[in-house]
Amino acid sequence: MEQEPILSVSNLHTQFHTKSGIVKAVDGVSFDIRPGETLGIVGESGSGKSITAMSIMRLIKDPGKIAKGDIMFKGESLLSKSNREMRAIRGDRISMVFQDPMTSLNPVFTVEKQMVETIRAHRNVSKKQAVDRAVELLDLVGIPSARSRLKSYPHEFSGGMRQRVMIALALSCDPEVLIADEPTTALDVTIQAQILELLQRLQKELGMAIIMITHDLGVVAEVCERVMVMYAGKPVEFAHVHELFDHPKHPYTWGLIGSIPKIVKEKVRLEPIQGLPPDLRALPKGCSFAPRCKHAMDQCLEVDPALLEESDNHHVRCLLYEEKEKVVTS
């Protein structure tokens, strides 16, 4: 029997009110995630992945705001929480690992200070207990001679080690949801693999849900169970990972999968998607992907497709799959 979702995002709209117009960075995103599950969010740069994550954390700053939708965490709406209640959740129940470990840790504080303050922000423990916990966490993420490394500053660690520190920081209070926003993008390949392995191992041990944000389908294939593909702020395809790779349905996903370098009989095939993402301030009428879609039809310029369940648990937003007569009449 499936567990209740720990986090559900429904119809989330996050917008930035800029001088040159309203940027619809996230435009109707919905998903559920259950304890212990890993959900992937993929899409090109600018598709709204990070803004989705920051919305869940309620860290959207002016001029941005969550315009519509809801975010439920353990049955309670995060959007109706006060700032103080939200601070108690951040870093404790829901925590986040960011893309660039070089810049995500404060350069002027020791790792000890940065870990201890997090633990003590959420747990009523003594300094010494917090230090012990920090050592335990650094051990957990595989940092050798943890206790002596506590006194080091971030610049004294390599990129991979720093990302381990970031992960340790995010795990300080045994979060129930971990949002990893491109946690391996800034690292080189061997380190990437180590970090992903670490995250999977920790998830098994600690049982948290992970939202894995990436633009790398290789990462998705390796760690995720379900995947949401985003384009221009909207989910365009949502499926189990095997289903997505075996039967991709959206033309944009075809492009993405085509753009993973495939070494077939020593021949490297690389098919990037032509064109650029649309201007989020002035989305075209009809399907946002139409200007770049090789399969676009006349009605694609007129009708904005809805996200429909094409087959079992496989959702797609594309007119190719809407019932013929519906397309014709609309």
Binding site: L59, A88, I89, G91, F98, T103, L105, T118, L169, S172
Partner: peptide, 17 residues
């Protein structure tokens, strides 16, 4: 605007800190 300030916010630290 630096990333480490975003991290500090994401850790749930009080604003004055």
């Amino acid at each position: 605007n630096q990333d480490y300030i975003r991290t500090a916010d994401a850790k749930g630290l009080a604003s004055y800190l």
